[in-house]
Amino acid sequence: MTSFRTLTDSALLGSARTGIIAVFTAVILIIIITGILAARELKKQRMIDNAEQSAADCGPVPDTDDNN
């Protein structure tokens, strides 16, 4: 058996229902923004990792000022 409480409950009529919809709208918006921020961060990190990998693959940079 499962007991349900839905947005059509008598306790949720009028401004309470509007309020709860507003809360969930705000929550969804924040989750979307968080996802975008995390995606940007991961992209930035991948670029840094690729740059570090490229630098490591090239080996030590020779000292060009050494005229010997």
Partner: peptide, 29 residues
């Protein structure tokens, strides 16, 4: 998410909220 500990912590709290939401609407008796 290295370098972004605050954002990383935020994901866990979003998860906690999403996990508790169903409890407000239905329960297995």
């Amino acid at each position: 998410l290295k370098g972004k500990p605050g954002l990383a912590f935020g994901f866990t709290t979003i998860g906690l909220f999403l996990g508790t939401v169903p409890i407000f609407f239905f329960t297995f008796t």
